[in-house]
Design a protein around this nucleic acid. Structure first.
Lengths: 173, 173
DNA sequence: GATGAAACAACCACGGC
DNA sequence: GCCGTGGTTGTTTCATC
């Protein structure tokens, strides 16, 4: 995970459909080299997928909300079963399991406020393990497409013997 | 936005790097037809970009948190200036402007809990407009890669002029 | 709009440095 | 580990229905 990998990760997050040639030219390296680096990033699990991003308001889901949920009792079986349940609902975009006053935060996108209300009443509060629900409408959602390796300290490059995360650079091919 | 467009949107969200041939074959249409449909989705702003997804823990940012912030006074200049400020911080992944007890919800990914603490103390609470901060550690974050057009009612065909959220404009491609 | 064929460009494995 | 080249594949355009 050197400087070059970081640059590749940033560029591919910004636009996953650049051709390998464009990438190589942007970094000043040969296309074949670039290709191998990108493949290594996939092999090591740094890049986990490529997804098209859609405008939710243009697929009939212009209203977003965050629904905070507290469960009772908040033990593992209850948490895990609820998580699985809520993940599979079509309105759900993403699910946070969090510490603090609430246990879950559910990010949903729906057709309109009526639909939102129905979601909470007909899907959520029907579950008996729910102790509390707090719904916040999302006025704006700014999502940064690029998550850069943080400044001030680089990601562990190749410190061997360290118990970090599974020593990605294992295969010596 | 017919049944075919919906299928394309779903498939491209799942994997943006499928070749046009694969897409066409999956839908049972000719590659050239498929290409034109996909282009139309871009033109109409349904698909706004293609982004590689990275494993945050593998780029040195394994700890995530949600930081709820209440501002004072919560008027437009204060909200907008704070939003711009917090969006540009490197720790920030996404920013929700919400209704309810708090005004902002900031999703951050950091190196460790010490870094999280420093983020809150050195970046956020330094701003004078902040009335309250509540930090929740994220134990799990399940993100659904695919947002399907919701069942029960089809999406508006092509209503133009709506500004979505004034965020980063799609890179036309 | 959808289709098929031909020009064009990109990808990818290989051998050499 | 990085680079250039040749065979292969996919994309893109155009004429046609």
């Amino acid at each position: 995970m050197d400087e070059l990998d970081s640059a590749l990760v940033t560029l591919l997050q910004r636009d996953a459909r650049q051709t390998n040639r464009e990438l190589a030219r942007a970094l000043g390296i040969a296309p074949s080299t670039c290709l191998e680096r990108v493949r290594a990033l996939h092999r090591r699990g740094v890049i986990v997928g490529h997804h098209a991003k859609v405008d939710l308001s243009r697929i009939g889901r212009p209203v977003q909300a965050l629904v905070a949920v507290r469960l009772r009792p908040p033990n593992r079986p209850v948490i895990e079963s609820f998580q699985q349940f809520v993940t599979q609902l079509p309105e759900t975009l993403s699910v946070f399991v969090v510490s603090g006053a609430e246990d879950f935060l559910i990010h949903v996108a729906v057709r309109d406020t009526e639909h939102l209300h129905a979601f909470v009443l007909d899907h959520l509060t029907q579950r008996r393990e729910i102790a509390d629900v707090r719904t916040s409408v999302v006025f704006q959602h700014m999502h940064k497409p690029v998550a850069e390796p943080l400044p001030g300290r680089s990601a562990p490059s190749d410190r061997r013997g360290r118990g970090g995360y599974g020593g990605p650079d294992g295969d010596g091919r």
